[in-house]
């Protein structure tokens, strides 16, 4: 009696274990897929942490931040920016933003575009100047960032570019993005790897950030200054916005990064389901 009962119990345990394994693997896929989306929301909040603007501004539509580069005449703001700069940035960029040999470059002439890009995405300040700057939660609130950007902007350089995705065309954006950006950022803006750098995915970026990165060329990225006219810039921003919500007409998009998750589904989901099937219909002991 015990002999016939035991295998049955084992069988249930095994089927259960196999199911748990398959579901777990897929859940990790699903998490992977959700991660950028959640990060995106968090990123938007990070841009205005807790400040009054977080309540005032709706998340949809182009974000209308007051362009700090256009307020050079506000000496109080520049002064506040200088205080923050000396406190938080000068150990690498020097007390007068002329840079420190071996630690950080001069910021004279980089302009509001670069300052707003690095500070707005939390890439600066950075702990170790040898690290690749990656998107993070900024320690500064928006008011402080505006002050810092105003301080850096007074030394000259390109202002924060204007961009309006609504004025761009999606197909032109896809064409330009595929030609100029996809070889590093992946065709659907999912990011990837290069020798020497991790390429960020673009699902957390705002149109303004995209335009700034094109202007500045942060880290290993080349700058595309002056290569695109306003219409083309708007189109690229419009395509990047579009990649945040791709049209997955075939069902579950499994991350939109191509065959690797597809292979995992083939092995774990299809293979797992059929392995369970043949285990159920086939004999398990020799006759």
């Amino acid at each position: 009696m015990s002999g016939s009962g035991r295998p049955r119990l084992h069988r249930r345990v095994r089927v259960g274990a196999a199911l748990v394994l398959a579901v777990g693997a897929l859940a990790s896929l699903a998490l992977e897929e959700d991660a950028p989306a959640q990060g995106g929301r968090a990123g938007l909040e990070q841009a205005r942490p807790g400040g009054p603007s977080a309540d005032e501004q709706p998340t949809a539509g182009p974000v209308e931040r007051p362009a700090p580069g256009l307020e050079p005449g506000d000496p109080a703001m520049v002064a506040q920016g200088r205080r923050l700069f000396v406190d938080g940035c000068s150990s690498c960029h020097g007390p007068d933003a002329r840079g420190v040999r071996g630690r950080g470059p001069s910021l004279r002439g980089v302009g509001a575009a670069a300052a707003d890009f690095y500070l707005g995405t939390g890439r600066m300040p950075i702990d170790d100047p040898d690290d690749e700057p990656i998107r993070a939660k900024s320690p500064y609130d928006p008011e402080q960032r505006r002050a810092l950007v105003a301080y850096v902007a007074q030394f000259g350089g390109p202002p924060i570019p204007k961009v309006d995705p609504a004025k761009g065309t999606l197909s032109q954006g896809l064409e330009l993005f595929t030609e100029h950006c996809a070889s590093c950022h992946q065709v659907a803006g999912r990011g990837g790897m290069l020798t020497g750098a991790v390429v960020p995915d673009l699902q957390e970026s705002e149109p303004e950030t995209v335009a700034e990165a094109i202007e500045v060329g942060p880290y290993l990225m080349p700058n595309f200054r002056g290569q695109f006219d306003q219409k083309e810039l708007d189109s690229i921003a419009s395509y990047v916005e579009y990649t945040k919500e791709l049209e997955d007409r075939g069902g579950w998009g499994i991350g939109n990064i191509g065959p690797v998750p597809e292979g995992m589904v083939a092995w774990l989901l299809a293979g797992g389901a059929l392995l369970l099937t043949i285990r159920l219909i086939g004999k398990r002991t020799p006759t």
Binding site: E179, S183, G258
Partner: peptide, 24 residues
């Protein structure tokens, strides 16, 4: 479950490429 959404990859030209391209 979506597999190979070619509309998201776009058409090929010899001067185009994407990061993370993978075979099946």
């Amino acid at each position: 479950v979506q597999i190979n959404p070619i509309w998201q990859w776009g058409p090929y030209e010899p001067y185009l490429s994407t990061n993370g391209a993978q075979p099946d």
